[in-house]
């Protein structure tokens, strides 16, 4: 098996992570998450693939014909279902966020930090932190 699918999977995952960590828009961020997930598809299919083998359906092939690994294909199918669920759920959440706050920028939407939205690092104090100790 060549190293190419593994390299592609690693690249996809890395570029997806980069996209998530720099994203300023939730729709874009969800797209990046899907890119990360595509990395798992490529990895799994690459692992299950055999050269010169048929799809694992033996309807018109005699048993014993070399076939690609059906387990990996089953995993990818499950993975696609999971991905669809997640994307749908995330998009619904994003829609609700937009309805309530009118923005899709993660930096303006920090949980538990009401006046968020200033500069990037350290612009916000934890609520009431100094009041305690």
């Amino acid at each position: 098996m060549s190293w190419l699918p593994y390299a592609v999977a690693a690249w996809l995952f890395g570029i997806g992570l980069f996209g998530i960590s720099t994203s300023r828009n939730y729709i874009h961020l969800i797209g990046c998450l899907s890119v990360c997930q595509s990395a798992t598809y490529v990895l799994l299919l690459g692992i299950g693939y055999r050269w010169d083998a048929i799809a694992p359906i033996f309807y018109d092939h005699p048993p014993g014909t070399p076939a690609v690994d059906p387990v990996m294909q089953a995993l990818v199918l499950t993975d696609i279902v999971v991905g669809a669920t997640l994307t749908a759920l995330l998009l619904v959440l994003t829609l609700q966020v937009y309805k309530r706050s009118g923005t899709l920028d993660p930096e303006r939407l920090r949980p538990m930090r009401k006046n968020a939205g200033g500069g990037r690092v350290g612009a916000r104090q934890e609520p009431g932190a100094e009041a305690q100790l």
């Binding site: 998530i20 995330l90 939407l109 949980p111």
Partner: peptide, 17 residues
Amino acid sequence: DESALAGALNFTVTNSL
């Protein structure tokens, strides 16, 4: 509400990863 949605988004993205 706004907090719950933002918290849920953070939760969902990290745990999907």
